[in-house]
C-alpha cells in the first residue's frame, strides 16, 4: 500500500510529536537539575541560563549516591535473574507439555498484575517483618522477582512457542534429558528472546518505587528511595530533586539506549517473521 506524500508527512509529524511529548519531561528534568534553586522556580521558566553542577554536589553531600546505585543494581539484577530462574522451567513446561489448564494458568498469572500492589501491602509487610526481611536486599529481590514473574513467564512462553517441537523431539531422540534439552537446544534458540525479557525485567525493577519505598529505609534502599528522600515536607527543592532524579535514571537510560535493538527485536519477536 503506497501512502501519499501528505499522509506520510502527517504520520512523521505525529511520530515526532509523540516522541517529543514523551521526551519533554526528561529533558526538562535534566535542564532543571542544572539550574540554581531560584532559577528552577522562576516564572517564566528560564530556557537560557548558566548551567551549574551545584545541585549535584549538594545531593552527593547529603546522600551517598553510590550506595543507593549499588543497591539498585544488585536488587534489579538479582530480581531479574531469580524471575528468569523460575520462569524458564515454568514457560518450558507450559509451552511444550501443556495441560488443559495451561491457558487458564497463564491468564491467572497475568490477572495478578491487575491487582493494585497496595492491596497486598499489609500482608506482605507483616510477612516481611516477621521473617526479618524488611530493609534487606534479599527481601526486595524476592518481591521484584515475584512482581515480574507473570510478565517474564508470558514473554518466554511466546518465544518458546516459536520453537518447533520437532527440534526438541530430535534432541530427545538424541538422548537429551529435560535439562540438556533446555540448556543445549531451547536456550540457545531463544537467546534473543530471553535476553530481551531479562532487559525488560531489569528496567521494570530499576524503576519500581512502591515496594522499595515501603519495604526499605536505608540499608537496602535503591535509587527510587534516594529520589524520594529529596521531596521533603518542608518544601520542594526542585533543582536538587531533578539532580537526584537525573542521577537515578541516567544509568538505566544509557543501558536502555545501548540495548534498544535487542529490546525492540525481543518485543516484536514473532510478530514479524
Amino acid at each position: 500500500m503506497e501512502r501519499s506524500l501528505t499522509q506520510r508527512a502527517l504520520i512523521t509529524a505525529l511520530g515526532w510529536g509523540i516522541a517529543l511529548l514523551l521526551f519533554f519531561p526528561i529533558f526538562w528534568m535534566v535542564l532543571t537539575s542544572l539550574k540554581t534553586e531560584t532559577g528552577a522556580i522562576a516564572t517564566p521558566p528560564q530556557l537560557i541560563f548558566r548551567p551549574s553542577l551545584s545541585s549535584y554536589i549538594d545531593v552527593q553531600e547529603r546522600a551517598d549516591y553510590l550506595r543507593f546505585a549499588l543497591n539498585s543494581v544488585l536488587i534489579s539484577v538479582g530480581g531479574s535473574v531469580l524471575a528468569l530462574a523460575f520462569a524458564i522451567p515454568a514457560a518450558y513446561s507450559m509451552a511444550f507439555h501443556p495441560s488443559p489448564r495451561t491457558r487458564g494458568t497463564l491468564l491467572w498469572m497475568l490477572s495478578t498484575k491487575m491487582l493494585p500492589p497496595v492491596g497486598v501491602l499489609v500482608p506482605i509487610y507483616l510477612l516481611f517483618r516477621n521473617a526479618g526481611l524488611l530493609d534487606t536486599q534479599f527481601g526486595l529481590i524476592v518481591i521484584y522477582a515475584l512482581m515480574n514473574l507473570p510478565i517474564v513467564v508470558w514473554m518466554l512462553f511466546t518465544f518458546y512457542k516459536e520453537v518447533p517441537n520437532e527440534i526438541l523431539e530430535a534432541g530427545r531422540m538424541d538422548g537429551a534429558r529435560t535439562w540438556s534439552e533446555v540448556w543445549f537446544l531451547l536456550l540457545p534458540l531463544t537467546l534473543p528472546g530471553v535476553a530481551s525479557t531479562g532487559l525488560l525485567s531489569l528496567i521494570l525493577c530499576w524503576n519500581e518505587a512502591f515496594w522499595s519505598l515501603n519495604l526499605t529505609s536505608s540499608g537496602a534502599a535503591p535509587l527510587t528511595t534516594f529520589i524520594a528522600s529529596f521531596s521533603s515536607p518542608e518544601g520542594l527543592f526542585f533543582a536538587k530533586l531533578s539532580a537526584a532524579s537525573t542521577a537515578a535514571v541516567a544509568p538505566i537510560l544509557v543501558f536502555g539506549w545501548l540495548s534498544q535493538r535487542q529490546l525492540v527485536r525481543g518485543l516484536t519477536f514473532g510478530a514479524v517473521k
Binding site: 518447533p164 520437532e166 527440534i167 523431539e169 531422540m173 538422548g175 534429558r177
Partner: peptide, 20 residues
C-alpha cells in the same frame, strides 16, 4: 522408558536439525 533411553534414532519429516 523415555525416548532418550530407548536407543533408537529418528529422522523427521521437517529434518528438525538444530539451527544453531
Amino acid at each position: 522408558v523415555g525416548p532418550a533411553d530407548r536407543g533408537l534414532a529418528m529422522v523427521f519429516q521437517s529434518y528438525a536439525l538444530y539451527p544453531h
